[in-house]
Each structure stands twice: as C-alpha cells, then as structure tokens.
Amino acid sequence: MKQIKTAIIGAAGYTGGELLRLLVHHPACELVYVHSNSQKGKKVSVVHPDLIGDCELVFTDEVQTEGIEAVFLGLPHGETKGFLEKHSFNPETVIIDLSTDFRNEAHGFVYGLPEVNKSKIQKAKRIANPGCFASAIQLALLPAVAKGWAKNQIHISGITGSTGAGKKLAETSHFSYRTGNMSVYKLFDHQHLAEISQTFSQVNTDFDSELLFVPYRGNFTRGIWITAYLPFEGTIEEALSAYREFYVGAAFTHVSDQDIDLKQVVNTNKCIIHLQVKKGQLVIYSVIDNLLKGASGQAVQNFNLAFGLDEKEGLRLKSIAF
C-alpha cells in the first residue's frame, strides 16, 4: 500500500493525541513530522504516554510544506486562517482542518460530514472537519429534516465529556468541578448551531426551524449523548425505514432497534442512533465519541475518502463496552 506523507500541526492536545494514536498504525500513512510550538524538542511519547513503543517522533516547531501530501490542522479555533496565510502548501496537498475556521465552506473548503458530503470529500483538497456536538446532532436529525418532519422548533439536549473542553485547564474542566457535577453552558447559543443549520438547509432547502439546544457538561471524560424530539404523526416503522434508508451507505452510522448506551461508541468512530415514537413525538437518541467521530476519527475517515482508501482504514476500533 502506498504511503502518504503526512504531517500533524498542533498535535499536543487531546485531538492531536487521538490523531497520532490512529495514524501511527494507519497502513497508508507515513508520519513525516508532528508540530507543536509548546512541546518542541520533546518526544511524542513523553507528551502522549499512551504512545510509548508506538511512536519515536519528536515534536518540532518548524513547518515543512515541500513533499507533504496530507496535513491535519489541530490548531485552536481562530488560528488556522493565519497559519495558512503564513505557510503555503501545494494545491494538491490535502488539508483537513479540525477547527471552526472554515466550516462555513468558505475559501474552497468542503464540509467534512461523510454521511452527506461523501462525493464532495472524495474530490476535495481542503476539508473542514465538523464539530463534535454538530456531528452528533446532525446525524440524529438529518433523516427527519430530509423528510420534512422537522418543523417549527426542535428541542435538543446533549451532554459531553470533559475532553470536549480541550486539554488546557479551565475551572469547569478541573476534576474537582466535574466530578459528581453537571452544568449547562451556552444555552440556545452554541457555536455549532450555524454549521448544523447549514447542513440541514443543504438536505432540505425549505428548512427554517429553530434549534433549541441545551448543552451539558458531563462528569465523565469521553462521549456525547444527544436527545432530540419533534412532533410526528407517523409510526415507528416509518421512522426506522426513513433512517435506515438515509444511512444505507454510511460506514459508521448505525440505527439500533435496542436501547443504546454511551460505552457502545467510546473508543470508536461509530454513531449509534435509537428511535422511539411516543405521545406524538419522534424521539431520537444519538451517541458518539467526541474525540473520534466528533473529531480525530472523522478526520481520518475524511483522509481515507480524499485518497480513495477504504473508508474504514485505520478505524476498525472496538468500544470499551464495560
């Protein structure tokens, strides 16, 4: 298998560490260098101890553009635009950005949600990876939106693990704050709502519903649980049929007849969905790993698509289960 010369820019955080964990074992990836300004000169396995014995690379603060075929950008939100203005990569280099900077499909970037944009991603050289909450919410609601079932207001709640806040310490990510605790943040005003509405309008040009999203901070490390509901006059059989038809070609999104739980997806690139029809409402549950299907795993999925590889290459991961 051909080795694709790859670099990771901004690889010291949680998503960078997950990218490394996936790519060091990816059969088509040759990691040329790993960039970090804060960790330059340190071995990768010192910063990410889970990679002891798997990666001998040393972090560098130098940016090499020549000969690089794929670049993953794990920079903080708002810094990617400036970085790409300063560092010019070959137009044929595939750039996958994990920040919010290009999710509005500006500057030639394709929005990297494979369940909707697979054919675009396969041709793209610039890919904007979706946000974690955005991925889980979109996958929960896309079939209903496409069918025109999502009208007026859509009620959504979601709880995310502490790794969703990033590696940099903040009061609300400290162990003493999170443990035995829950809290709401960015009520009805989460930054991911813009990209969600953009995708919903793509699959249904008549979509104009208001998304009322309540995000919770959870007292666990990994995973996202979404609950969404909307008025529905159909049967559970009709709902299941629509969802299964929409996701028939999806490599990682599955509709379950059984009740689901978060541990089914932790450490995997899966999204698992469960539906119920009750009291005139279609209730949708959606679970993902925020660091994988919500970030680094989906980025590798997009890498595979952009280079014509098996979509599941390097992502055949088993959940922790218990």
Rank of each mutant, 00 (worst) to 15 (best):
V58S: 08
F59A: 06
F59G: 09
F59S: 04
D61K: 15
E62P: 01
Q64A: 08
Q64R: 12
T65M: 07
E66Q: 12
I68K: 13
A70D: 06
G74T: 01
L75M: 10
L75R: 03
P76D: 05
E79A: 10
K81F: 10
G82W: 13
G82N: 10
E85N: 14
E85T: 07
H87N: 14
N90L: 02
P91S: 11
I96F: 13
I96G: 07
I96M: 09
D97C: 00
L98K: 12
T100W: 02
R103L: 01
R103A: 04
E105Q: 11
H107M: 06
G108I: 01
G108Q: 00
V110G: 06
V110P: 05
Y111C: 01
P114V: 01
E115G: 10
E115D: 14
N117I: 01
S119Q: 12
S119G: 12
K120R: 15
Q122H: 00
K125R: 14
R126F: 00
A128S: 13
A128V: 09
N129G: 06
N129Y: 12
P130W: 15
A134P: 11
S135Q: 08
S135E: 08
L139V: 05
A140W: 02
L141W: 01
V145S: 04
V145F: 03
V145L: 02
V145W: 06
G148Q: 03
A150D: 00
H155V: 15
G158K: 02
I159F: 08
T160C: 13
T160V: 10
S162T: 13
S162C: 03
S162W: 05
T163K: 12
T163M: 05
G164H: 12
A165F: 13
A165P: 01
K167P: 00
K167L: 11
K168I: 12
A170F: 07
T172L: 14
H174M: 14
H174Q: 15
F175N: 02
F175S: 10
T179N: 14
M182K: 07
S183F: 10
S183W: 10
V184I: 14
V184D: 11
V184L: 13
K186I: 00
F188N: 11
H190L: 03
